[in-house]
Design a protein around this nucleic acid. Structure first.
Lengths: 197, 197
DNA sequence: CACTAAAATTAGAGTTACTCTATTAATCAT
DNA sequence: ATGATTAATAGAGTAACTCTAATTTTAGTG
């Protein structure tokens, strides 16, 4: 038994909320969609919504990609340069996305970038990511996770990746794998201003 | 006549709101301070508060530093590396602050770092600053502001500055000016892992 | 199957940040 | 002084939460 009925129902409800909410956000806009709208669409009470997500923003942000990338990063072999390692990890994860996952990801980034309230939340999440990336870098290099150089490097990496997300949101036809790869390569090369993407 | 009575009164009211609000935020906490509390302390109506600041967060964030940094950035001489130039601009502005300005900035930093709601807003502010810097740089070098290398570099700068804030959150006694300078210096040096801040 | 413990759902009331509109009061130019 | 701007305010409304207390649904046990 893959976890009781309760757990399965909860997962289904959670997924339904996320799906209907995204549909409404993209359709009517984030601010114009109320919790009541979402609750009605999912056929739950507004109270229940807050049992699953602490805030409206969290519906957009909770995704499963970050853990995947972090895991892939950790699984890379050898003493490779951290940036190169991250590059490999991202390539691995992105090329394995289902069309459905990729579509959802594009929708999310588009929403985040075009909605001020979400932009703030995205940047907040950034703090956590820096921690996680720095933590992984630390365990690999045998350093303290609070090491200044490590954290700073993690920050720069996430900075260029976030910028890439913004670029992607403005040009949905762009190849994300290639963009991410280019961004990290450029960073690795020391950010020269004369650079051919 | 340095602008009529009206203007002077407005400036005074604005300053009073900011002062009383900061006092209350530091005293009781950001979330625990209501608009009504602030209005009462300044002896204005809650409606008036929103005539001066569009949101509670803006009271903390509206400062005059960004224009100064941009101007200093623009005034830097020669063909210096953009990161070095930004670094110089920030250092120049920060070291020329009046004691009053510096105290306020420290209070702000402390608040931002200890208040989750404000962190997101602060990072947004950084993003805007870097965006502006990238734009300025673009017009200087005759490049498109959407130039890949330019944007990527702006992203890296944003990333290390935001990381600095995270570091500060864990060590509130740290010197923010020095941390920002170190972060940019490290980035400029190509993010070597063996680096002594 | 019946019964109970645990957990999920819900209703409802309350708080607060904000918005909008309309009214009153203060300042300015003449 | 007076009429025109502009600022301050009251008041009503919305929506995102929060908290509490009930009610329903599922799980486990005899």
């Amino acid at each position: 038994m893959s976890a009781g009925l309760r757990e399965r129902k909860k997962l289904k409800t959670r997924a339904a909320i996320q799906k209907e909410a995204m549909r409404l956000f993209l359709d009517k806009g984030f601010a114009e969609t109320t919790i009541e709208d979402i609750a009605e669409a999912v056929e739950i009470s507004p109270s229940t919504f807050f049992n699953y997500f602490p805030s409206k923003e969290d519906v957009v942000f909770q995704d499963e990609l970050d853990p995947l990338i972090l895991a892939a990063f950790d699984a890379q072999p050898g003493d490779v340069n951290p940036i190169a390692r991250l590059r490999a990890a991202m390539r691995q994860v992105f090329t394995q996305l289902t069309p459905e996952q990729e579509r959802l990801m594009r929708q999310r980034t588009q929403l985040m970038v075009s909605t001020p309230e979400l932009r703030g939340a995205m940047l907040s999440q950034f703090a956590d990511l820096v921690d996680q990336v720095a933590g992984l870098l630390a365990s690999r290099t045998g350093r303290d996770a609070r090491d200044f150089a490590l954290r700073n490097m993690a920050g720069a990496v996430l900075g260029v990746l976030m910028t890439m997300v913004v670029v992607m949101a403005q040009d949905p036809s762009a190849d994300m794998v290639h963009l991410a790869d280019s961004a990290l390569a450029h960073l690795e090369a020391g950010l020269p201003l004369d650079w051919k993407a």
